[in-house]
């Protein structure tokens, strides 16, 4: 089954979105967003994988050894950094919501304010 790693990525994404849809706590929802986002790591690394390939670092292996795709690894690094910063920013928004309304339950946040 050569598509199984890609299907696993789709499954992780759906699990994360399901968690966000049914979430009763904004901190939990932010965690679910991180899960949904981590599916992209699995997908990218799955695409870049090369059977028998090693890490694309030539400090201790001869140049020309088969290696996995470094481009997608760099993309995953970008992905991780952006994911972490977005999580931090969302969590600070949750803290502010808790301060202003006294709740972190998205169902209770129905009033329009402003």
């Amino acid at each position: 089954m050569s598509v199984l790693p890609f299907l696993a990525a789709g499954w992780i994404f759906l699990v994360g979105v399901y968690g966000m849809v049914t979430s009763r706590n904004l901190v939990h929802a932010v965690g679910c967003l991180a899960v949904a986002q981590s599916s992209t790591y699995v997908l990218l690394l799955g695409i870049g994988y090369r059977r028998g390939g090693t890490a694309p670092v030539f400090s201790d292996i001869p140049v020309g050894t088969p290696v996995v795709d470094p481009v997608v690894q760099a993309l995953v690094l970008t992905d991780v950094v952006v994911g972490a910063t977005v999580t931090a920013l969302l969590l600070s928004l949750v803290i502010q919501i808790r301060k202003r309304t006294g709740t972190v339950d998205p169902e209770a946040l129905t009033d329009l304010k402003g």
Binding site: L7, G10, G46, G48, R50, P66, D69, P70, V72
Partner: peptide, 21 residues
């Protein structure tokens, strides 16, 4: 799932961008 079947095979030796990088 339909899209996944059209992707390059998992573990393929053919990585044009990777080889150039």
């Amino acid at each position: 799932a339909l899209t996944c079947t059209q992707l390059p095979h998992f573990g393929t030796a053919d990585h044009p961008y990777g080889a150039r990088a």
